[in-house]
């Protein structure tokens, strides 16, 4: 599972960086390194791009995991050059940006757009498989989430846009319900497709969602 990111266009970045002269670049050694959007190579390349914008790069750091609780300590160790910067340019997913924005007393500019949380199916190929809806139906849909895998997020079978097992909005994508149908049929469980499902509860957990696990936090097993 990875947080999937995509580099923002340099022109867009130039706009965000316009008010700043001294820039510190932060990368992430986990997801953004795996996706080639915020690892050492991309950070070094970004340094050159920022310099071409006639800005001064005061330093850079690729943290092991930009979103985890160790990240502030990583940034503290880089304090000298980081303190000297007008802003930090974060080449991590939005969670790393959040972590940096909370711990640094200066603006943090995201260099990436965060797209989705993806499952790596084969090296370099990621797919969104879970909408994190809080009401898992996978046990009855042969392990394929229709809320995620169907473009319309339908619960009760295919729409009229399915064609040859593919989805109308993108013929490279499987129709979720064709795949669900085929798997359930192979398992002899087609009956699971027959009963109509009730409308989804969109507020299983009040948005913005949060969770507290006190036992884990206290170091005790639940």
């Amino acid at each position: 599972m990875k947080s999937i990111t995509k580099a923002k266009p340099l022109e867009e970045l130039a706009g965000y960086l316009e008010p700043f002269n001294r820039i510190y670049i932060l990368g992430c050694g986990t997801c953004a390194t795996m996706t080639g959007t915020g690892g050492v190579d991309q950070v070094v390349q970004m340094k050159e791009h920022v310099q071409e914008m006639n800005k001064w790069v005061t330093g850079w750091l690729v943290m092991p995991t930009a979103c985890d609780e160790m990240a502030p300590a990583d940034m503290e160790r880089a304090a000298g050059n980081l303190d000297y910067a007008d802003c930090a340019l974060a080449m991590s997913c939005a969670m790393g940006v959040h972590r940096a924005a909370e711990s640094l007393q200066k603006p943090v500019i995201p260099a990436l757009d965060t797209l989705f949380v993806g499952l790596e199916e084969e090296p370099g190929h990621f797919r969104e498989v879970c909408d994190q809806c809080g009401q898992c139906v996978l046990g009855e849909t042969a392990g394929i989430c229709p809320l995620t895998a169907c473009h319309k997020g339908l619960l009760n079978g295919p729409c009229g846009g399915t064609d040859g097992g593919k989805c109308e909005v993108d013929s490279d994508r499987d129709c979720a319900f064709t795949v669900i149908y085929e798997r359930l049929k192979a398992q002899g469980r087609l009956d699971l497709m027959r009963g109509a499902r009730s409308p989804r509860n969109y507020h299983v957990t009040l948005s913005p969602r949060r969770a507290v696990f006190n036992d884990v936090h206290d170091g005790r097993l639940p």
Partner: peptide, 22 residues
């Protein structure tokens, strides 16, 4: 509505039945 020429047809027929029941 229904698409008689859907491929595969069976999921469409299952949905047809659901619509009748609904």
């Amino acid at each position: 509505v229904v698409t008689p020429g859907a491929d595969p047809l069976e999921p469409q027929l299952i949905k047809y039945e659901m619509k009748v029941e609904a």
